[in-house]
Amino acid sequence: MRVEIWSDIACPWCYIGKARFEQGLAAFAHRDQVEVVHRSFELDPNRAKGETGPVIPMLAKKYGRTLEEARSMEEHVASNARAEGLDYRAEGRDHGNTFEIHRLLHLARACGRQDELLNLAYRANFAEERSVFDAETLLELAVEAGLDADEARAVLADEDAYADEVRADEREAAELGATGVPFFVLDRRYGVSGGQPAEVFTQALEQAWQGRAITPIGADAAACDTDGSCEVPQPGAHA
């Protein structure tokens, strides 16, 4: 059984949702027969390459909040991440165009190192003092993930390398009706949207395996949408 996950490295709920999905997968009896493929989805495709800015002011402007309110929003997301055992810096992160990391992730998939690079990129973006929006950092992450440095450097230098693959993923997401991420597709028959609890993913996997229709789930699950914004559930709300 194949599970395809559309996500963006800039999306905190993709970071959290990946951890929750992996917990749900670990509890699935047939987990060794599941192939996981990560697909590209840009939250902010219109942002110019190299144009970055701090996350807190971006959130404040997007939601019409004060900087202090934006910090509180980020702290709430951080608490969800930490509850899954993930490190998360609520301040000091940048936001930018993620097309380059998606191209590199396609190279990593071709080399059998996609999950390794994705994990490193999430950690660099959300937990460490490392920007994923410059070529030097991306090259470092690629090498850490086990990719050949010269091959990764060549891909980053060639703007056309794997660009078609990224665009194809994004077209497929639109065709499947995905308006936000994370978005999970099981065997091209069933879909699960948002950073669901681990047990929901286990249930979805079991139902997909048995070939039964999945009851629509996840309408209230946190996700990030195509204008670059992310839902931030209030304390006490389902996340």
Rank of each mutant, 00 (worst) to 15 (best):
E69A: 15
G191E: 11
A124I: 02
P235W: 07
G194P: 09
Y88I: 04
G53A: 14
G236V: 05
A239I: 05
H238T: 11
Y190M: 13
D32N: 11
A157N: 15
H76R: 15
Q210M: 11
F184K: 00
G180A: 05
G96S: 00
A152R: 03
R153K: 12
A163R: 14
L107H: 01
H38A: 09
P54A: 13
Q196Y: 09
R93W: 03
A19I: 04
V192M: 11
A149V: 13
L176D: 10
L25K: 08
Y88Q: 05
T52F: 00
G96M: 02
A10H: 01
G146W: 04
F99K: 02
G50T: 00
G236K: 06
A223D: 08
G92N: 02
A154M: 08
R31D: 10
T226Y: 10
G180N: 03
G96W: 02
E159L: 13
V192C: 10
C230S: 14
A157G: 14
Y15R: 06
E84N: 09
V155N: 00
A29Y: 09
A219E: 13
L205Y: 05
P197N: 03
G53N: 04
D8P: 02
R188N: 07
R2G: 07
S131T: 06
H106V: 03
E199F: 04
